[in-house]
């Protein structure tokens, strides 16, 4: 536990030194301040006053709830797409940095398994993003809840889904980092796989358009094997707006991908010479 904590804290320290943590924190703070400002402007204040004056009639209440859910959905979508990509770009250097000559030898000379070192780094990285995501989502949730009296707990699911998908993409960063020791290549590999997701998600359409069976099979194989960033994002948007999710497959299959990629990363790391 002592060692795991030390590895996680070291990742935090490096994220702070590289301004990754503070950069993400500043963006989250700006968004929170933006919503605080929005809630203070006349038109919103007026709408809120109207509801207060005439009582929460069913229709008005429903309209406000829909608006709040819409805002929650927009924040979740922003966070899930731009926020997550920003986090991947920012943290892609945190794995290659520990593999630098002169640093890795010292880490490996300690009585800690290589698996522990790599997974400690991974966990620290996920925690940096989890803290910033929680800060932003909870901040927005509290602002809207306090102002409107409407508390939509489903919005909090966006913390789980964003952090989860970040962890899935980070596993690619870890594997690419161990293989090539380059932040740029890690980022490119991760973004390329993430960008394939919305294309592969059109597998129903592809089934109709593709003429040969093997291309249809290949499409489906890629769809099921690679992380479903797009599908999980769409599901998050639905859940945040209190709509039911049709299937949890995008989450569990992405979790399986993350596990397999991390295992590959750890195996290669254990066999490498430094």
């Amino acid at each position: 536990m002592n060692i795991t904590l030390a590895l996680i804290l070291d990742t935090f320290r490096e994220a702070m030194a590289r301004k990754i943590f503070w950069g993400l924190f500043a963006i989250s703070t700006l968004m929170i301040l933006f919503f605080l400002f929005v809630m203070k402007i006349d038109i919103v204040e007026g709408a809120m006053a109207t509801i207060t004056l005439f009582g929460n009639t069913g229709r008005r209440q429903q309209n406000i709830e829909e608006i709040i859910r819409g805002v929650h959905g927009a924040v979740a979508a922003f966070l899930y797409t731009w926020g997550m990509f920003l986090a991947v770009f920012a943290s892609s250097g945190l794995v290659p940095s520990i593999l630098e000559p002169g640093r890795i030898e010292l880490l490996l000379s300690k009585p800690v398994s290589r698996r522990h070192i790599l997974l400690g780094r991974f966990a620290g990285n996920v925690l940096v993003v989890a803290m910033n995501t929680s800060y932003l989502v909870l901040g927005v949730w509290i602002i809207f809840g306090a102002k409107t009296g409407i508390w939509n707990p489903a919005f909090l699911f966006s913390i789980v889904s964003t952090v989860f998908m970040f962890a899935v993409l980070l596993s690619i960063v870890v594997l690419a980092g161990v293989l090539w020791e380059s932040a740029a290549v890690s980022t490119m590999a991760t973004v390329a796989i993430a960008l394939m997701s919305p294309i592969l998600a059109q597998n129903k359409l592809a089934e109709r358009l593709l003429s040969s069976q093997w291309t249809r099979d290949l499409w489906n194989a890629l769809y099921y094997a690679l992380p479903k960033v797009y599908d999980a994002g769409r599901m998050t948007f639905e859940i945040v707006q209190n709509r039911p999710a049709d299937s949890w497959m995008p989450f569990w299959s992405s979790a399986a991908f993350c596990g397999a990629i991390l295992l590959a990363g750890v195996t290669i790391f254990e066999k490498r010479d430094f």
Binding site: R13, E14, A17, R18, G102, R103, E105, L106, S109
Partner: peptide, 11 residues
Amino acid sequence: YLPENHRFPTY
């Protein structure tokens, strides 16, 4: 262990 050309993180 003290390696040659060690690189301690400067943070």
